[in-house]
Simulated assay, not measured.
Amino acid sequence: MKNMNQTNQQILYYARLFLQSRGYNGFSYRDISQKLGIKNAAIHNYYPRKEDLVAALLEDSRKEIAANFSQVVESGGSAREQLQSYFDYTLRDFDEGRCICPPGSVIIYHEELPEKVQKQSLLLLDEILYWFSRVLKTGLEQGEFNFSGPVDARAELIVGTLIGSRQLATIKGRKTLAKSISLIKADLGWKD
């Protein structure tokens, strides 16, 4: 049983790595099986179709991000500290070869994706947007941020900027992502 769970975790690890570096259509079961030294059929035992694998991966990402958000909130950090932890996570993820964030890795194909992948992608994106909205609202109320307009619209702007800048950074380099984060901070009235 332990071996099966370990294999499943390895399948998810490589699927996430490929998804976030190549996009939805940029990898196959063969890519994963070659990394693990197993047959494609072994992956099909866990995930009969690619849509099953990617939907499970996006669901795992959502749960992981929700747990990380909860941990950051429970740590009692200020809104700025909470956002900084997300920015640090984003840069670390990029540095570890996962250049495209999970929602960004499927967003371009959204209309073509199987329904279960679309659903998980939207749930993940909604989780991220909800968290950003909460943090931005708290930051405004506590005087940590200074911006105009609706909090929800600002959250969408930030998330969209991060998704796009991560994709652009795959071509232009990490500096592009770091500059975008600096501009987001300036836009929020964040002074270091």
Rank of each mutant, 00 (worst) to 15 (best):
residue 1 M to D: 02
residue 4 M to E: 12
residue 12 L to Q: 08
residue 17 L to K: 12
residue 28 S to I: 07
residue 28 S to M: 00
residue 28 S to T: 08
residue 29 Y to F: 15
residue 29 Y to E: 04
residue 32 I to V: 09
residue 32 I to Q: 06
residue 33 S to E: 03
residue 34 Q to D: 08
residue 36 L to G: 00
residue 37 G to Y: 04
residue 38 I to G: 12
residue 40 N to C: 10
residue 41 A to H: 13
residue 42 A to I: 08
residue 45 N to K: 11
residue 47 Y to W: 10
residue 52 D to A: 06
residue 53 L to T: 04
residue 54 V to S: 03
residue 54 V to T: 15
residue 59 E to W: 08
residue 64 E to C: 02
residue 66 A to R: 00
residue 67 A to V: 11
residue 68 N to V: 12
residue 69 F to R: 04
residue 73 V to E: 13
residue 73 V to C: 06
residue 74 E to Y: 14
residue 78 S to P: 00
residue 79 A to Q: 04
residue 80 R to M: 12
residue 82 Q to W: 05
residue 83 L to P: 15
residue 83 L to H: 11
residue 83 L to W: 12
residue 84 Q to P: 09
residue 84 Q to W: 06
residue 86 Y to K: 04
residue 86 Y to R: 01
residue 91 L to K: 14
residue 92 R to P: 15
residue 92 R to C: 09
residue 96 E to G: 08
residue 98 R to I: 04
residue 99 C to V: 09
residue 101 C to M: 09
residue 101 C to R: 05
residue 105 S to H: 03
residue 106 V to A: 03
residue 108 I to L: 07
residue 110 H to S: 15
residue 111 E to C: 00
residue 112 E to Y: 00
residue 118 Q to A: 04
residue 119 K to H: 11
residue 123 L to M: 09
residue 123 L to C: 09
residue 124 L to E: 05
residue 126 D to A: 15
residue 126 D to F: 03
residue 129 L to E: 13
residue 131 W to Q: 11
residue 135 V to A: 02
residue 135 V to G: 08
residue 135 V to I: 09
residue 136 L to Q: 10
residue 136 L to N: 05
residue 138 T to A: 06
residue 139 G to N: 09
residue 139 G to Q: 06
residue 142 Q to L: 10
residue 145 F to V: 09
residue 148 S to R: 15
residue 148 S to W: 15
residue 152 D to R: 13
residue 153 A to M: 12
residue 157 L to G: 14
residue 159 V to R: 13
residue 161 T to R: 00
residue 166 R to H: 13
residue 168 L to I: 07
residue 173 G to I: 02
residue 175 K to C: 02
residue 179 K to W: 03
residue 183 L to D: 08
residue 185 K to T: 14
residue 191 K to C: 08
residue 192 D to I: 14
